[in-house]
């Protein structure tokens, strides 16, 4: 039942071969086997959203997914959001308007919002609050996160070719 299996995982544009027990959560495999500790684990029951990553471009809870389910899928984690050391517009906006405090929920929020802004370039505040409702933040009261998303969306629109 718990005999390890070998699988290959495509994460952030690279393919990794790992040997893990079938019951091992994707969040644990990313953190422990691949050393991608930017994905945080806050509840292990899918409520807090700290472990949100992108599976084939869509936000998903890494704590509710087994790594063995992920062969043939394309995974993106917080480590691939910036361009090297250059912060993405969302990361930059979160920094400028103080949209993070302890930082534990931040990677999950960045993954959720990054995916959304790709398809919804001009969200209003109600829409943004609705979007964020799947990610708990205990520090900020969300106000500056909302502000950062509005700012980031504007920046992304400004950068896009007309």
């Amino acid at each position: 039942m718990t005999a390890p299996v070998t699988l290959s995982l495509a994460v952030n544009g690279a393919v990794h071969e790992v040997t893990v027990p079938p019951r091992k959560l994707l969040s644990d495999v990313l953190r422990e086997d691949l050393g991608l500790t930017g994905t945080h684990v806050g509840c292990e029951h899918g409520v807090c959203g700290a472990c949100t990553i992108l599976i084939d471009g869509q936000p998903a809870r890494a704590c509710l997914t087994f790594a063995v389910q992920m062969e043939g899928h394309d995974l993106t984690t917080i480590e691939a959001v910036s361009e090297g050391d250059r912060l993405s517009p969302l990361q930059q906006a979160l920094h400028q308007v103080h949209g993070l405090q302890c930082g534990f929920c931040t990677p999950g929020i960045i993954m959720t919002v990054t995916a959304y802004l790709r398809d919804h370039p001009d969200p209003d505040e109600v829409e943004i609050r609705d979007l964020l409702s799947g990610n708990l933040c205990r520090c900020t009261g969300y106000q500056n996160i909302v502000k950062a998303v509005i700012r980031a969306a504007a920046e992304i629109r400004a950068r896009a070719p007309a």
Binding site: L36, G38, V41, S82, Q96, H98, G103, F104, T106
Partner: peptide, 22 residues
């Protein structure tokens, strides 16, 4: 703006579980 933001935004914070050796 805060100095600690950069590492948190990049997913390079060092919370306890991030520094436990294998």
């Amino acid at each position: 703006p805060r100095r600690e933001d950069r590492r948190f935004l990049l997913g390079k914070g060092r919370y306890l579980d991030d520094i436990v050796p294998p």
